[in-house]
């Protein structure tokens, strides 16, 4: 795995609220895992929509793109793709490192 793939430079004004953002993502990731197991496409779509809207604003556009893909795959009820994207989001968050600049 290329560690640099998940390294981001984030604007320093976001530093005080970044830990809360990551905590929210952790909570959503758990909900996402349950939704994948239950094939709950409505919840997956909502979680994808939320991630698409917030991650880019926090300086993580690639994570936002994954949210967008999750939303559209859930809309198509494509279980395999939803599961795959969920794992990609998990990998992204587990390996994310940031520098505040």
């Amino acid at each position: 795995m290329n560690e640099k793939k998940y390294h981001y430079e984030i604007e320093s004004f976001l530093e005080p609220i970044f830990p809360d953002f990551l905590n929210d993502r952790k909570t959503d990731l758990e909900e996402e895992e349950q939704a994948v197991n239950k094939k709950d496409f409505k919840t997956l779509s909502l979680l994808g929509h939320k991630l698409a809207g917030n991650a880019g604003s926090y300086g993580l556009p690639e994570l936002g793109d994954l949210g967008k893909e999750l939303e559209s795959s859930a809309h198509d009820e494509n279980y395999d793709r939803c599961k795959e994207i969920h794992l990609q989001i998990k990998e992204f968050l587990e390996n994310l490192t940031v520098d505040f600049i």
Binding site: F13, L14, P16, I17, G53, N54, Y58
Partner: peptide
């Protein structure tokens, strides 16, 4: 309804 988003906006506007 997205707390991450509203926190970001609130933080920016108040500052």
């Amino acid at each position: 309804d997205d707390k991450s988003f509203s926190r970001l906006i609130k933080h920016n506007l108040e500052n």
